[in-house]
Amino acid sequence: MSKIALILLKTLTWICCLIPLAILVQGSITNNLGPDPTAQIEFATGHTALNLLVISLAITPLRQLWSRLSWLIKFRRLFGLFAIFYASIHLLAYVGLYAYFDPHTILDDIAKRRFITVGVAAWLLLVPLAITSTTGWIRRLGGKRWNQLHKLVYIAVCLGLLHYWWQVKSGVLTPLWITLIMAALFLARPILTWWKKQKGRTAQAA
């Protein structure tokens, strides 16, 4: 991929990733976030964070499937960082609009309400990944250790989905689609690795 194409595509990615935030900011200014703006801010930021995690986790399987798409790796950090960005607004919105900045309420919620416990845990797991996302940190940790550390994203995603399931009412199936997509992406990795090995073997045999 040419340098100009890469810059253009990165700019486009930035714009796309900022659209959900722009909608919320514009809606807050014009009081146009629907009947329940607090809930809308909370839902939109959480949903965007999960969607961005899906996209960032889709990159490796896509590269494994089509080697022509290997340049996608240049976008993974961007999606990951935007995911934690939205997760942070999500957390901040909870702290401000639900707990009213009251530390007692926050600690009480974390201790008593399991969907909040796992939500906060998921965010905490994303923090070291964001910090070590720079090239400098990759060098300092070494590729292997860095890769191991960043496997934490799988746990964070599982906790994020659990947070979603435990938040909706019993019997409501809204989180089903994103859960199925996430499960497919999780399974894609070992399956694709195995498939590549098989292909390698047949190539050798021939």
Binding site: S28, N31, L33, P35, D36, P37, T38, A39, I41, L97, Y98, Y100, T105, D109, K112, R113, F115, W166, Q167
Partner: peptide
């Protein structure tokens, strides 16, 4: 009496801006 997943002490008034809903 709290709902297991949230407090029932306050409520969000529908139709108000987010900073004035509680």
């Amino acid at each position: 009496v709290d709902h297991p997943r949230w407090s029932q002490k306050t409520e969000r008034v529908i139709g108000k801006p987010f900073y004035a809903q509680r």
